[in-house]
């Protein structure tokens, strides 16, 4: 019985540490990346796994403590996996809409980011749209 607890303690500790490290790396990505679109990768992917690991540890811990499966955390995981991509998509959509600057090394020139000649002429009479 003691052996089981020791092993489970190790497993829980492993998941907690792995989750924390992933969360830390994801946050580091926010500071280290060059433009908005690259910064988006950190939170959308890495923190998902980070939180996933911590929730796994939580499931293991409370299942052991309450002597019965505790699966509530699965719900958080599922909702997270559904909502993280959607929010990332909406963020990048609005970034494209505002034509945020991208890293000069980025290849590919989507029409969403091109300066649209006709469009700017149409908008010109409405006021000074030449933002710095």
């Amino acid at each position: 019985m003691i052996a089981l607890y020791t092993v489970m303690e190790g497993v829980i500790a492993f998941f907690l540490i792995a989750g924390s490290i992933f969360a830390l790396i994801g946050s580091l990505g926010l500071t280290r990346m060059k433009d908005f679109y690259m910064r988006l990768h950190g939170p959308s992917k890495i923190s998902t796994l980070g939180v996933g690991c911590i929730l796994l540890a939580s499931i293991a811990y409370f299942s052991l403590l309450d002597a019965g499966p505790s699966l509530q955390e699965l719900l958080i995981t599922i909702f997270l996996f559904i909502t993280a991509p959607v929010s990332a998509h909406m963020l990048s959509k609005s970034a494209l809409h505002q034509k945020l600057a991208r890293d000069p090394r980025t290849r590919g020139n989507p029409q969403e980011l091109q300066e649209d000649e006709e469009h700017s002429i149409e908008e010109a009479p409405q006021g000074d749209s030449k933002l710095p």
Partner: peptide, 26 residues
């Protein structure tokens, strides 16, 4: 693939020379 994705993205983020090759793909 999510696990692999995390390891790869971590690698890119932690790369001290910052050698990412970003691209927009249609």
């Amino acid at each position: 693939d999510i696990i692999i994705a995390n390891l790869e993205a971590s690698k890119v983020i932690l790369d001290p020379r910052g050698r990412a090759r970003p691209a927009f793909v249609e």
